[in-house]
Every structure is written in structure tokens, then in C-alpha cells.
């Protein structure tokens, strides 16, 4: 039993990070029908903000605060310079953001080099409870992720911003004829989605190796989580993230990482094919 608990905690923390990444993707996809292939790179840049902060001797918390601000601002630039011009061509957004992801990746290679970096843990200790011991930072990471996910849900279900956002998702034309500036909603949702990615990258930076190629490893599972869970209700991301992240991690422990990845992708593809509206329902892609 006591061997099982760390595994469950590891799996849970992976799922939570995946859900954070997927939430940002889903806000952008659900709201604008835009597939942001550069989302993984925004996550990666969030992690690199931590690397830069460490190199500059800034405290850990400063990096955590700076990452979503910098990445969110980058999101604002991307929306204004790129996405805004192709809202009405959803398939082209895939290609354009793909080009963006290549450019961002290379920009990071040019600035930080192609090698991987590590970020020091801000807290070193472990939580000891009898025979049970678990790194403290991972617990903090989980708590922070839960707070963030909860906060995002709260924003979209309990606030005026959320009401407006859901209205724009459901009936953009009707929302506009009620005086709601849909373009402005798109813009800020995009910024929120990218800032979330940046923050997720920053939070997870101390427990992974930070390198320019790390984005893809989160982008594809993130998307599969959305499609598996269903792109309609927000809760779909939780279910999708649990399925994709859970299966992936458990199989990686019990069989091998390669078998796990192959199995989880195939399971996800099967679910998406057999239930295109996702486990939790919702609309299909445009």
C-alpha cells in the first residue's frame, strides 16, 4: 500500500499539469475554434522564464509571477499580429500557429542554446509521515495546480467575464447584437489561455528538464485530453486529462514509457473516433 501512494501522487501531479495545459488550449479552441499548435511552446517559454530568473538571481516566486505575465503578453502580441487575421479560417490557424511554434522553438535555441537546463527546487525537503515520504515541492505543485484549475473554473462559471465568454462561445452573433464585443472577448480569452500555459510551464520547471523541444510532449496529450473529454463543458478537460495522463503514467510505471505512450495515443484515438463529441459531450470541431 505504501508503495502505491507515491505512484498515485506522481500520476495525479502529472494529470494536474496536463489539465492546466489543456485548459489553456481548450479556452482558445472552445471559444474561437482556433487550434493553437504553439501552445506547447508557450508552456516551454514559461519554463524558460524560470531558467532566466534563476540565472539572474531572482527569487523563485518572482519567476512564478513573471512567467504568466511575460507569456500572456506574448499571447497578446500573437493574437494581434497573427490570430486576428485568420479567425475565420480555422484550419489555417493550425498551420500558422505551427509556423509560430517552429519560430519560437528556434528563438529559444538561439537565446538559451539547444541543451537542457534545470531549475533548482525552491523547497528541498520531503513530507515524512511514518514510512511514507514525498518531496514537498511536488505537493506544493499539486496544491497550486488545483487552485489554478479551480480558479479558472470559477472565472468561467461564476463571474461576469465567464458569462460573457460562454455567451460568445454559444452564439457569437447573438452576443454581438447584445452589445458584446466578441473580438475583445476572443483576445482576452487567448491571453488567459497563454498565461495559463506560461504559469504551468513555470510551476513544473523544477521537476523536469527544461529544453526547447519539451512543448510537443505536452501539446499532443493536451489536445488528446480535450478531444477525449469533449470540447464543450470545462469538466471534459478533467476527465480527458485523467484518462490520458492516468493511463500514460500508470503504464509507464508498470510496462515501459514507450508502450505507455503508444497505448495511450491509440486509446485516445479510439475514444475520439468512436465518440467524437467526447466522453462528457459538447460540440464537435467546426
Amino acid at each position: 500500500m505504501s508503495e502505491l501512494i507515491p505512484i498515485i501522487l506522481d500520476v495525479s501531479s502529472y494529470i494536474l499539469i496536463l489539465v492546466l495545459v489543456a485548459l489553456g488550449l481548450m479556452i482558445v479552441f472552445g471559444m474561437m475554434g482556433v487550434i493553437n499548435m504553439a501552445h506547447g511552446e508557450l508552456f516551454m517559454i514559461g519554463a524558460y522564464v524560470m531558467v532566466a530568473a534563476q540565472n539572474l538571481g531572482l527569487p523563485f516566486l518572482a519567476g512564478i509571477i513573471l512567467a504568466p505575465i511575460i507569456v500572456g503578453f506574448l499571447g497578446l502580441l500573437i493574437e494581434a499580429a497573427l490570430i486576428r487575421h485568420i479567425y475565420l479560417r480555422p484550419l489555417d490557424t493550425i498551420l500558422a500557429t505551427w509556423g509560430l511554434s517552429i519560430a519560437l522553438k528556434q528563438l529559444v535555441v538561439l537565446t538559451f542554446g539547444p541543451e537542457s537546463h534545470s531549475v533548482a527546487l525552491p523547497v528541498d525537503g520531503s513530507l515524512e509521515l511514518g514510512a511514507f515520504s514525498y518531496p514537498l515541492y511536488r505537493l506544493i505543485l499539486m496544491a497550486a495546480s488545483i487552485l489554478l484549475i479551480g480558479g479558472t473554473f470559477w472565472l468561467f462559471t461564476r463571474t461576469d467575464f465567464g458569462l460573457l465568454a460562454r455567451a460568445v462561445i454559444a452564439r457569437p452573433n447573438t452576443a454581438a447584437s447584445l452589445g458584446i464585443d466578441t473580438r475583445r472577448m476572443y483576445r482576452w480569452s487567448f491571453v488567459i489561455g497563454t498565461a495559463l500555459a506560461g504559469l504551468a510551464g513555470a510551476l513544473v520547471a523544477p521537476i523536469i528538464s527544461v529544453d526547447p523541444q519539451m512543448g510537443l510532449g505536452y501539446l499532443v496529450p493536451g489536445f488528446l485530453s480535450i478531444l477525449v473529454g469533449g470540447a464543450g463543458p470545462l469538466a471534459g478537460v478533467l476527465v480527458g486529462g485523467a484518462v490520458v495522463g492516468g493511463v500514460n503514467n500508470l503504464l509507464a510505471v508498470w510496462i515501459s514509457p514507450v508502450a505507455a505512450l503508444i497505448t495511450v495515443y491509440i486509446i485516445a484515438i479510439l475514444i475520439i473516433r468512436l465518440k467524437p463529441e467526447g466522453i462528457m459531450g459538447g460540440r464537435r470541431a467546426k
Partner: peptide
């Protein structure tokens, strides 16, 4: 074209916000 998933008050609130 009312927002079927929203309450009556929320439908009205949307227009107020707009």
C-alpha cells in the same frame, strides 16, 4: 436565439453587460 443553458436573469444580465 436565447441562451438556453443560462437562467432568465443571466440572459438579461448579458445584455446589461453589453
Amino acid at each position: 436565439e436565447i441562451f438556453a443553458d443560462f437562467t432568465v436573469a443571466e440572459n438579461l444580465r448579458l445584455s446589461l453587460l453589453g
